[in-house]
C-alpha cells in the first residue's frame, strides 16, 4: 500500500511539473500541449470509437502474429533442440536472424504483401518467431539427463518420454520464451503499424503526427505504454513466476 501511495505521489509530481512548464510557455503549444488537452483527446478518441477500433485492430494483429510466432517458433525450436544435425546446420543463422531489429523487416514485408494488414502480421510473426525458437531450443537442451535416465529405467521411451518428461520439464523455459516472444512481437507490431496504412494504434500515431496533433501523439504513447506494462507485469511475468515456483526453480 505504501508503495502504491509513493507511485501515486510521483505521478502527481510529474503531472504538476508538466503543467508548470506548459503554463510558463517556454515551448510552443504544438510541441508541448497541456495534459488536459491530452486527456481530452484521449477521451474523444474513445467516445468517437476511433481509438477503440484502432486498439481492436492492433490486438487482432498481435493475437494472430504472436500465435503464429509461438507455433512456428516452437516447431523450429523442437527441431533444433532434438536434432543435433539441424542445430549444427541452422542454429547459428537463427541467432543471426534473432539479432535483426524487427523494423528492418517492414520494407520487405510491404514489398511482398503490399500495404495490407497481413504485411503487419508478417512483421509481428518475424518479430516473435526467432526468440521463441531459441528459447524452446534451450528449453529442450535444459532437460536434465538424469531425469531422462530415471524415466528410462521406468520403462518410458520414445514419444512417451518426450511427452511425459521432456515437455513438462521444458515448461518454465517455454514460458520465458512466450514472455519474450510477446515483448518482441509487441515492439514489432508498433514498428509495422507505424509504417502501414492502418488500421492500428501505430497507424493512428502516425496519422496524429501527420496532422501535427501532439496531444493525440502523447495520448497514444500513454496507451501503448500502459498496455505494455500491464501485459508484461500482470500477465506474462506473473505466469512465468507461478510456473517457476510450481517447478521449484526459484527459492524465495
Amino acid at each position: 500500500m505504501k508503495i502504491f501511495i509513493k507511485r501515486l505521489v510521483f505521478l502527481f509530481v510529474v503531472i504538476g511539473i508538466w503543467q508548470l512548464v506548459y503554463v510558463s510557455g517556454v515551448f510552443p503549444d504544438i510541441a508541448f500541449p497541456s495534459l488536459i488537452l491530452v486527456f481530452e483527446s484521449l477521451f474523444n478518441g474513445f467516445t468517437s470509437g476511433d481509438l477503440i477500433s484502432a486498439l481492436l485492430a492492433s490486438f487482432r494483429h498481435l493475437l494472430l502474429g504472436l500465435s503464429l510466432a509461438i507455433l512456428i517458433g516452437t516447431a523450429l525450436g523442437v527441431l533444433l533442440g532434438k536434432s543435433q544435425q539441424a542445430d549444427e546446420t541452422a542454429g547459428m543463422y537463427l541467432v543471426a536472424l534473432q539479432s535483426i531489429p524487427s523494423i528492418v523487416w517492414v520494407p520487405l514485408s510491404i514489398l511482398v504483401f503490399g500495404f495490407t494488414e497481413f504485411a503487419v502480421i508478417f512483421v509481428v510473426v518475424l518479430g516473435g518467431t526467432f526468440v521463441m525458437a531459441l528459447n524452446v531450443r534451450s528449453a529442450i537442451h535444459s532437460v536434465p539427463p538424469q531425469l531422462v535416465r530415471a524415466a528410462r529405467t521406468m520403462g518410458t521411451s520414445g514419444f512417451s518420454l518426450f511427452y511425459r518428461v521432456e515437455i513438462p520439464s521444458s515448461v518454465p523455459y517455454f514460458m520465458s520464451g512466450i514472455r519474450l516472444a510477446w515483448a518482441f512481437s509487441w515492439r514489432a507490431l508498433m514498428a509495422g503499424e507505424l509504417l502501414s496504412n492502418g488500421p492500428g494504434l501505430g497507424y493512428s500515431l502516425r496519422f496524429a503526427q501527420d496532422y501535427a496533433r501532439m496531444d493525440q501523439v502523447i495520448g497514444i504513447i500513454i496507451i501503448i505504454g500502459v498496455i505494455g506494462a500491464v501485459m508484461d507485469q500482470l500477465v506474462f511475468s506473473k505466469l512465468e513466476k507461478n510456473v517457476m515456483k510450481r517447478w521449484g526453480l526459484h527459492k524465495s
Binding site: 530415471a150 529405467t153 521406468m154 520403462g155 518410458t156 513438462p168 520439464s169 517447478w247
Partner: peptide
Amino acid sequence: IKAGPDRGMVFQQPSLFPWLNVKENVMFP
C-alpha cells in the same frame, strides 16, 4: 538389452519430477 521396469533404479540424486507431486511421482511408472 534395454532399460525396463523389471529393474528399478535409485540414483544418488533422487531424480524426481518437479512438476509432479509426491504421489504422482510414485504413480509415474
